[in-house]
Simulated scan of single mutants.
Amino acid sequence: MWTVVYIAPNTAAAERARALLTQEGFLVRLRPVEVDEAGRGSVEVLVNEGEAEEAQEVIAQHLAQLR
């Protein structure tokens, strides 16, 4: 099952989160939430439920880079 570990404020931030987590070895999915054609709007970043806690720790360590 996939679990949301981060809600990015836009598509660019979601892509940065995906790149970071992928580099750390996580499988990542992005799920847009009301994103327009310009990439504005929230995007959910999801990982496997069993890896969610570890993924959240990675995101917390790099949060400044994601914004």
Rank of each mutant, 00 (worst) to 15 (best):
G50R: 13
L30N: 01
E24H: 15
N48S: 11
L66A: 07
E51A: 10
I59H: 05
A52V: 01
L46C: 06
L66W: 13
T22E: 15
A64D: 12
V33M: 13
R16H: 08
A60I: 01
L27E: 15
V58S: 02
N48M: 12
A64E: 14
E37V: 12
L20F: 09
R18V: 00
V45K: 09
E44A: 15
G41P: 00
A12I: 14
A8V: 08
A17K: 06
E15D: 10
A12H: 14
F26K: 06
R29C: 01
Y6T: 06
E44L: 10
L21C: 02
F26H: 05
V35S: 06
V35M: 06
F26S: 02
A14N: 04
R18G: 01
T22S: 15
R67N: 12
V45N: 11
A17C: 04
E53Q: 11
A55Y: 07
V43R: 08
L30A: 05
R29H: 12
Q23G: 15
T11K: 06
R29E: 14
R16M: 12
E44P: 04
Y6I: 04
A13G: 05
T22D: 13
P9L: 03
E53H: 07
T11Y: 08
G25A: 11
R16C: 00
A38Q: 15
F26T: 03
E15F: 09
D36A: 04
R29L: 14
